[in-house]
Simulated scan of single mutants.
Amino acid sequence: MRADTRRQRQLAAALALFAAALCGSRAEVIDDVLSSVSRGVSFLERQHEHINLDGAVGFVMLQAELKEAVRTWPHTDPLSWAQRTTAVALLKRLDQSLEKAVAALQENDPKYYREFEPLLSWSFWMVPQEWSSTDSSLLYSSTMTTECYDEQLSDKCLTLLLGTWKMNGTPCIVTKPCRDTMTLFGCPHYSLSHQLLYFMIGKMRGCSDLLKGDTRASRANLTEEDYQRTFCSNMMKTNQDIVRDGLTEQTLDIFIENILICGLAGFSDFLKADWLQHILRLQDGEVGCFGRDHGCSSHMTAVAVGALGGYLNFYLAEQDITKRPLT
Rank of each mutant, 00 (worst) to 15 (best):
K100R: 15
S42K: 10
P188G: 03
S297P: 13
C207A: 10
I30V: 15
N221G: 05
A307Q: 13
I279K: 06
A265Q: 01
P177K: 05
S218V: 15
T322Q: 11
L139P: 03
G202M: 00
D109A: 06
F255A: 00
T251Y: 09
D284T: 12
Q240H: 07
L139I: 07
R93A: 04
Y149P: 01
L44R: 07
S38G: 05
H299I: 07
Q8W: 12
C232H: 00
D109H: 08
P78A: 04
K100D: 04
H189M: 13
T145M: 13
C23W: 02
S133E: 12
E68N: 11
T164V: 06
G163A: 12
Q228Y: 00
Y149D: 05
D269Y: 09
Q10I: 14
A56P: 05
S141Q: 09
G163R: 12
L197P: 01
Q129P: 06
N221W: 00
I51Q: 02
V88I: 15
I321M: 14
G246R: 07
C296T: 14
S121A: 12
S38T: 04
M126I: 06
S154D: 15
T215M: 08
C207Y: 01
T146A: 11
L91Q: 14
T301A: 03
P177L: 04
I261R: 01
N258K: 04
E249N: 01
K272V: 07
R281F: 12
S123M: 03
D209T: 10
F18H: 07
G24F: 08
R216V: 06
C296N: 13
D32N: 12
A220H: 10
D293P: 15
Y311H: 06
Q83G: 02
R2S: 14
L11H: 10
A14K: 14
L91V: 09
R229Q: 02
D214P: 08
F43V: 08
L184A: 11
R244E: 14
I261T: 07
Q129E: 13
Y315N: 13
H194E: 14
D226P: 00
M236A: 02
F267I: 01
S268T: 06
S35Q: 14
C148Q: 15
F185L: 07
V70C: 05
R2K: 14
S268W: 04
E45L: 15
S233A: 02
A64K: 01
Y149E: 04
V70L: 05
E28W: 13
I321T: 15
R179V: 00
D214R: 10
R244L: 14
P74F: 12
D155Y: 07
L158R: 03
R216G: 06
E68G: 08
L252Y: 11
L197R: 08
R216Y: 06
G263C: 03
R71P: 10
T301H: 00
R7M: 11
L161G: 03
F18D: 09
T5L: 08
T223Q: 04
A87S: 03
